[in-house]
């Protein structure tokens, strides 16, 4: 394989790349509908807001791999979405501001709790922000005859759930994203579906949190769908393309993280960061392509 440069070790880098791909695909699947609802920032808000949930569950159980931690964080994430909606519906504060109030407050609370927790146990605020995907192969569990990283199992479950949701409710998601009013009059509860989407965003953010942290996961929710949107006018194509773009950026990102710094004489850099950089570059390329397409469409219609 071309990517496998001298530095690429399959038993390590292979698993890191797998974890990165699972994060990216899970996040971009649900991210499509955040982008289409013009609520991309909710991913940002939720991924920050899960911090106190994680911290509380962590303080409670003293371990990082427990189900309570997962549930606690997801609950706080959903709480963030609900509170944002509630403050906005009170009518005096717009959505952006109410989101800003809710998620910074929750994030700050989480930070306070984590710093407090870090005095006693091993939870690093740096990991919180940027994740520790490089540590993926160090925490293996056995699955039948195979040794698989624990993170990969969690992320696989989340990917399957998100896939079932997006494929199973594709029609309902597109209807409620495009025209929630019509959805309600037809008897599809747009609000319930929205809350379900928020729950899955929160669950995905929690699952990806350990690997890519709660800032860079936003790049996984938002950038591949936004890039895909520039390249296609079909919703189904957009969803599939975003998953592919997310996966490609994940693999390229990790490869770049262990290769590119060497060109400049540095030691390797962070994988999560590099994935986000690669995604961003992909977006710029897509933007240039879409400009060209728009220009050629204009010249076509001018000739017609």
């Amino acid at each position: 394989m071309m990517l496998a440069t001298a530095d690429w070790l399959w038993e390590l880098d292979g698993w890191i790349a797998v974890a990165a791909v699972l994060c990216a695909v899970s996040a971009s699947l649900v991210g499509n509908f955040l982008v289409l609802r013009k609520q991309s920032l909710l991913a940002d808000a939720i991924s920050h807001a899960i911090l106190p949930g994680l911290a509380l569950a962590f303080l409670w159980t003293g371990s990082r791999q427990s189900l309570p931690m997962f549930v606690g964080a997801a609950l706080v994430g959903v709480l963030c979405a609900v509170m944002t909606q509630w403050i906005r519906d009170s009518g005096k504060v717009d959505e952006g501001a109410s989101m800003g109030v809710v998620f910074t407050t929750l994030f700050a609370l989480g930070l306070v709790l984590i710093v407090r927790a870090a005095d006693r146990v091993d939870l690093d605020p740096g990991c919180v922000l940027f994740g520790a995907i490089e540590l993926t192969p160090l925490d293996m569990v056995s699955l039948g005859r195979f040794e698989v990283p624990r993170v990969v199992i969690t992320l696989s479950v989340v990917l399957v759930v998100n896939l079932l949701f997006v494929v199973g409710c594709f029609k309902e998601l597109s209807l409620t994203s495009f025209d929630p009013g019509l959805a309600e009059t037809l008897g599809f509860r747009a609000k319930w579906l929205h809350q379900l989407l928020m729950i899955l965003v929160a669950v995905t953010a929690v699952a990806c949190f350990e690997s890519v942290g709660n800032i860079l996961v936003v790049a996984m929710f938002v950038v591949p769908p936004a890039t895909a949107r520039l390249l296609t006018d079909s919703l189904a194509a957009m969803v599939m393309l975003s998953a592919v773009l997310g996966a490609v950026a994940a693999v390229l990102g990790h490869w770049a993280a262990i290769t590119v710094p060497g060109w400049f004489g540095f030691a390797s850099t962070t994988t999560a960061g590099m994935i986000a950089v690669v995604s961003g570059l992909g977006f710029v390329i897509a933007l240039l392509i879409s400009f060209r397409r728009a220009a050629s469409a204009r010249s076509l219609s001018a000739r017609a």
Binding site: L36, K38, G168, C169, K171, E172, S174, L175, S177, F178, D179, G181, L182, A183, L186, G187, F188, R229, T232, D233, S234, L235, A237, M238
Partner: peptide
């Protein structure tokens, strides 16, 4: 009231009127 930049064709929008008959999933 809707976003006309939504990535969907005219015929798909019209088909939305049938979603109640088609049913969930």
């Amino acid at each position: 009231s809707v976003d006309w930049d939504f990535p969907i064709r005219a015929v798909d929008v019209v088909a939305m009127g049938l979603y109640r008959q088609i049913g969930w999933f």
